[in-house]
Design a protein around this nucleic acid. Structure first.
Lengths: 348, 348
DNA sequence: CTGAAAGCGCTTACAG
DNA sequence: CTGAAAGCGCTTACAG
């Protein structure tokens, strides 16, 4: 352990060849006699030789490194899926990921980008934890960058986000499909925020109603805050309506969870008396609820994969405007949707 | 963007100094005349110069890089806290983190370690997602390594884990403190697994009872599986006892969540009729439950921080056996524990 | 098929 | 305080 690491020169000397030859076998290049190759490989194995990547980097100018910067990660438990997807794709291309959690601190973020650039990253994926517009540091433009679950307000960088509207539409259609007509929608944030995750899921809801000839009823729409408590309160409120909804579409699984408690209080059973669809597919919640929650999955791993794929394959010169990609949110069918009850909204 | 990056030579030439001088200002070394320093800095700013870290690495032999390898991350949403804690400490020492998710695949894990070693990492933190014994690849010994939330079976590597026994004890004491005597314990896994997270939390429970002179009652102990469903079933079962428990200590928050549904079915209110303490402090669950769940927090961020601290400061020569450190699990008081009811276990 | 040499972008003694 | 030179561990033409 105290010995100095062997270098390519040590290998060359011991194997009785030039360093160029050692380099060639290291990179599995042709034009090396089998006997020579074997001899060199034997010496490398004996000395437990390991190439120093930094030296290659400096010569070839390729770091085979991507930066992965996340912001406000704390608010969601999805960071991991994102990293997993991105990393899986990067590994296929022999690249590694340098992960930095900027954690909402602008200073840290700037510093992170600087560090990444000094390390020679060949691209950066910048991931937010919910779909909204961001304004990125200028330094980021020095290297190919793609945004995940967010987009640069100027739309001058490529991005990949969930297709929120389609998700909202399919969630609503799942309810319509089982005969529900009085369907409440509780958004995951105020519509005035302009966040796609709030606004577009709501738009999808409206589209579904319209496509199925169901009249939009303002009384059934609530602007929630995403939290369980918010879901609980709005649900109580909605159940107090003269004609309460039979179907509930929540902008987050957490709100759906809160709703379960409101239903329990009223003696309402899911899905016998009321049906519910969530959004996010947070396993720990959706699987744990009784009955388990039918919900729309956010394609985090797929977004991470797409981002690295784009870094790897897109042409980064000037040209057409950067692509703003959308990925579908799959419906995850569990047990919280059933046929509309005969006597809607009352105990069955 | 097409131009070649300026190097230290370009700066030197333009500023009319030697490269050594440029290097000195780059590293804020003394022995540079103020005027010279300023001139060099001006040129660097003009050319938008950024040092190439790999060159420094190769010269100094220091990568200022730590590897962060995780295993089986999928099973928990805590990966992020771990990374955050580790990264915060690393940043203070001007180190970066290369994160690899081995995701339970041994091949990926070996490859990851090899890659990390070629990148010249100065240390590796290997994090598991629950406290258990692991058997690590030999290559890991080539560089300082510390284990987080797990330990090498041979105990030949330093590790940091939660103090499970103390956590189990304090959880139980919280219940005792409010007068509960019939306290159920539902472990988060079979005791035969030998997992500290299961075995030691249970031991803590026993210690607390004994310390308070409460007789251990086998009928109140169940070996759970960690899932919400498991919590639900065991709770129903326990409620069917002749003399049901008034206090419940669950080895996971998920099981506590399942229990809430069992309580609701029986018309039992938390904490009026029954009190419960969980383990893990999974915010998405603990905060969302009604009432919010009192639970023991796993010190993930602190473990990540400790691991990097140890990498940075421990002496890694031979010598005494590697430290096996334990960190306390803080009690997070929310609203699920109350005084023991007058008529125990019945509707109040 | 192979070796000697140059060079990537830095840092570090060594003189002055 | 400063510059010229050597060298870290590789890769890449260039000869042979």
């Amino acid at each position: 352990m105290a010995e100095k690491k062997p270098s390519i020169h040590d290998i060359a000397r011991i194997a009785g060849v030039g360093v160029g030859t050692v380099s060639r076998v290291l990179n599995s290049q042709p034009n090396v006699a089998d006997a020579t190759r074997e001899r060199v490989e034997r010496v490398m194995a004996e000395l437990d030789y390991r190439p120093t990547f930094a030296a290659r980097h400096i010569r070839t100018g390729r770091s085979q490194l991507f930066g992965f910067v996340t912001d406000q990660v704390l608010t969601t438990p999805f960071a991991h899926d994102l990293i997993r997807g991105a990393q899986a794709r990067a590994r296929q291309a022999d690249h590694m990921l340098m992960v930095i959690d900027a954690d909402g601190d602008d200073r840290v973020r700037e510093q992170a980008v600087t560090n990444l650039l000094e390390r020679g990253v060949e691209g950066i994926v910048y991931a937010a934890m919910f779909n909204h517009g961001v304004h990125l540091p200028a330094a980021l433009r020095e290297v190919p960058t793609v945004l995940v679950d967010c987009y640069e307000v100027a739309r001058d960088l490529p991005s990949v986000v969930p297709d929120e509207a389609l998700g909202g539409r399919e969630a609503t259609e799942r309810l319509l499909q089982d005969g529900h007509v009085r369907i409440a929608m509780i958004t995951n944030d105020a519509l005035s925020t302009g966040y796609p995750a709030a606004v577009e899921r709501f738009e999808g809801y409206c589209q579904a109603l319209e496509a199925h000839g169901v009249t939009f009823d303002e009384a059934l729409v609530r602007e929630g805050l995403g939290s369980a408590d918010s879901g609980y309160r709005h649900t109580r409120d909605l159940l107090d309506l003269e004609l309460p909804p039979t179907g509930f579409f929540f902008g987050t699984d957490r709100m759906a969870m809160g709703a379960y408690f409101a239903f329990a209080e009223r003696g309402l059973r899911v899905p016998h008396d009321v049906s519910v669809v969530g959004f996010d597919d947070q396993h720990y919640i959706a699987d744990a609820l009784r009955p388990a929650l039918t919900t729309m999955a956010l394609p985090h791993a797929a977004m991470g994969r797409w981002a690295v794929e784009h870094l790897l394959t897109a042409s980064w010169g000037e040209g057409r405007p950067p692509v703003q990609h959308q990925l579908v949110c799959p419906l995850v069918e569990r047990g919280s949707v059933g046929p509309v009850p005969a006597e809607p909204g009352r105990k069955g």
